[in-house]
Structure formats: C-alpha cells, structure tokens
Amino acid sequence: MITCVVHYTIDPAQIEAFERFAREWMRLVARHGGVHHGYFLPAEGASDRAEALFSFESLAAYERYRARFGSDPEFVAADRIRDESGCVVRYERTFMRPLLPDES
C-alpha cells in the first residue's frame, strides 16, 4: 500500500471552495480504486494549512489514477474549483507507506 499525503497552503477566505474541491477529490479517489482518509482542515492555530491522506494498493495503481489528470472531464472539473476560486495557494505531495498496528 502507498499513501499520498498532500500538504496544502490554502486561502482562509476561500475555505468553502476548498471544501467543495476536497469533496470532489474524495469522491474521485474512491471511484478510481483508492481509499481516501479525509481532508484535515484548520480548527485552531494556523488557519492556512490543510492536509489530505489517501491510499492506493500500489504506486502503479496510483499512477493509473493519476493518468486521468488533465483529460478526464470529472478530474478537470474538480481542478477548476481550485483554479477559479484560488482556494489552494500551493501544495506538496509526499508518498509514504503506513506502519499499522499488529492485529492480535
């Protein structure tokens, strides 16, 4: 399993647009074989940070999902929310492998 952790710097004035953007990507990840663990939005402290975590069974599965970017109409529409609202100032992706508790 591979987990993608996305660190966002967001525009706090556009939080509603960011939530619309996030809901679309949660749906798209699930629809295309991934498991979305959610978006984590500011509650206290820094108001311009958000995080997202989602997993695919392998890097190859993630790359099949990623190949739809820029061409699949649903992916383009989801990105349009971000682009037109300016809700995302910048983002950084990190790939990690989870270490899960042993099942006893």
Rank of each mutant, 00 (worst) to 15 (best):
I2Q: 06
I2G: 10
C4F: 12
C4Y: 09
V5A: 09
V5W: 02
H7R: 13
Y8C: 14
T9N: 13
T9A: 08
D11K: 01
P12A: 10
A13S: 14
Q14N: 08
Q14R: 15
Q14D: 01
E16Y: 00
E16F: 02
E16C: 03
F18K: 00
F21N: 06
A22L: 04
E24V: 07
W25C: 07
R27I: 08
V29D: 04
R31M: 06
R31T: 03
G33C: 04
G33Y: 08
G34L: 10
G34C: 07
V35H: 07
V35C: 09
V35A: 09
H37G: 03
H37N: 06
G38K: 11
G38C: 12
G38V: 15
Y39S: 00
F40R: 12
F40K: 12
L41S: 10
L41A: 05
L41P: 14
P42I: 13
P42K: 07
P42A: 10
P42S: 09
A43I: 09
A43M: 09
A43H: 05
E44K: 04
E44L: 08
G45F: 09
G45L: 10
A46G: 14
A46V: 11
A46I: 13
A46S: 14
D48H: 15
D48R: 08
A52M: 06
L53V: 07
F54L: 03
S55H: 02
S55I: 07
F56E: 04
S58D: 02
S58A: 03
L59C: 01
A60H: 08
A61S: 08
Y62R: 14
E63W: 08
Y65G: 05
A67F: 04
A67Q: 09
A67S: 15
R68W: 13
D72G: 09
D72A: 10
P73Y: 06
E74K: 10
V76E: 08
A78K: 02
A78I: 12
A78Q: 01
D79E: 11
I81C: 06
R82L: 01
D83Q: 11
E84G: 00
E84V: 00
E84A: 03
E84N: 08
S85A: 09
S85N: 02
G86K: 06
C87M: 01
C87H: 00
C87D: 00
C87T: 00
V88D: 01
V88T: 12
V89N: 03
R90P: 05
R90C: 10
T94H: 02
M96L: 10
M96V: 11
M96W: 04
L100N: 07
P101K: 07
D102Q: 14
E103Y: 05
